[in-house]
Design a protein around this nucleic acid. Structure first.
Lengths: 146, 146
DNA sequence: CCTAATCAGGACTTATGGGTCCTAAAACCT
DNA sequence: AGGTTTTAGGACCCATAAGTCCTGATTAGG
């Protein structure tokens, strides 16, 4: 798996919030039902995002989650960093510590550009762009379309 | 981690065999010492490669491991497939089952080409090419150069 | 033939990510 | 004020990857 399960859930949740474009708070329960994610696990996962300011949360009967900033100003890279950390964008493909341009492993020259391609994909994709595509076509956030 | 620990060990072992270009069998113990890999764990890991014909093994005092075919005819993709399977090259970045061109997730159009780039890197890289680079420069197969 | 060295592979232990459960704290509503 | 609904977060359980240990099968060499 390229992303952890937590991170897949986090991105799908963020896209759900951006795509349904509501002004009020959306309860974790509602999201976990729509996306078929275990509720308690999602509740813990989003704490990493609220802590990073990517989500905002409110308690109480009308509480729930909402985006902490406009969807156009949130990249998928931020979400990955908040949940999984930056290892995906920096680590050696052979797991060798200190691998770099100065002290490369035998695959470094091939891996570095491929890794950069993956990085750029996450750094370029904003929630607004991606959510717009979600609403447009056949795109799905769950196995059964939401 | 993009590759499992097993797979990182497997590739480094294959490169070690290709780089030291010996005609005889090399004992697992010798490899695990050189690359700082737990011996018993490496012994189990390479069974996936001997089973796939990528390595050949021989028991007894002069036994050990050797490449099953010429290094120029072994790609890193084969090793990944034998150890980790093909999920890295086919799975949806959001973990949605059945994601494809026909039934895409919101990130499919961005992810598919990035994933193809990673695939092509492993499919193109042969043990011979990569091992040649290992011998040439400062390249390393272990934290302390071998 | 016997011993030592090596791979093969099952059984077991440990570490970690995924997931559940329960209690506390905050916010709304009557 | 008090009850209900929600997030926050600690404690715990489970599945799997990582790693260890031991026994057996095979081979070389005296």
């Amino acid at each position: 798996m390229i992303l952890s399960q937590r991170c897949e859930y986090a991105i799908r949740t963020a896209l759900f919030l951006a795509a349904t474009d509501r002004h009020d708070y959306v309860a974790v329960r509602e999201i976990s039902d729509a996306l078929h994610i275990p509720q308690a696990f999602l509740a813990k996962t989003v704490q990493a995002l609220t802590g990073a300011g990517i989500f905002a949360s409110m308690r109480g009967p009308t509480g729930g989650l909402t985006l902490g900033r406009p969807a156009a100003q949130i990249t998928l890279k931020e979400i990955v960093l908040a949940v999984d950390g930056g290892d995906l964008f920096t680590d050696c493909v052979l797991g060798l510590p200190g691998c770099s341009d100065r002290q490369p492993c035998p695959l470094h020259d091939q891996w570095a550009p491929a890794r950069a391609r993956v990085h750029d994909m996450f750094a370029t994709a904003t929630l607004a762009d991606t959510a717009a595509r979600t609403q447009a076509g056949d795109f799905r956030l769950a196995f059964e379309p939401v």
